[in-house]
Amino acid sequence: MNVPLLSDQIKSKFPDAVIAAHQYRGDDTVTIRPESIVRVAQTLRDDPAFQMNLLMDLTAVDYSKFAQEPQGKGGHINAGIALKQPSDIPDANPWPGPATQARFEVVYHFVSLPLKHRLRVKVPVEESKPEIDSISALWGGANWFEREVWDMFGIRFTGHPNLKRILMYAQFEGHPLRKDYPVTQRQPLIGPNN
């Protein structure tokens, strides 16, 4: 392909913002510094080279238990059976893994309809300061996506107009998709007080 990879173009445009980039199974991915997300997202949307007019998805991943066997009590954990690890399915082009040691990664999937390409942008977020700038001013759809990430992971989006829980109820304690939230934990359902 003659067209340079989107991640390379981002790299040349924002040399100070890019931490890492890789292609895995054809998915072009770039990891950038958290403070530059709004800048990069704006460029992705407005630059004629990218024209990413759809924010397809916005989510997060908690890497705190990555590649560790699950510990402690869980719903379906298979304890007590000695297992030999089966041989891995070979992978010619291995995945480099998360770019930093940060606990969370916020993952954006952008699509360009005119140019028909996709790009995944990942932003590491530290556990000590789970905050990142909101891009809800650029895409209306980011509003609810960011609320969901706040709800599920407890990552705060600064500048978000209405950051409250979306799937869980307001009185819910904790963030269920964090890996340290036990699967078996139950909380009494309290209805909204209105």
């Binding site: 998915d27 298979n78 059976i81 297992l83 089966p86 399915i89 992978d91 995945w95």
Partner: peptide
Amino acid sequence: FGHGIRPPKGEVYFP
């Protein structure tokens, strides 16, 4: 339990 498909480490998005 404990057996099953074990894909290599990685991440994909499929629409």
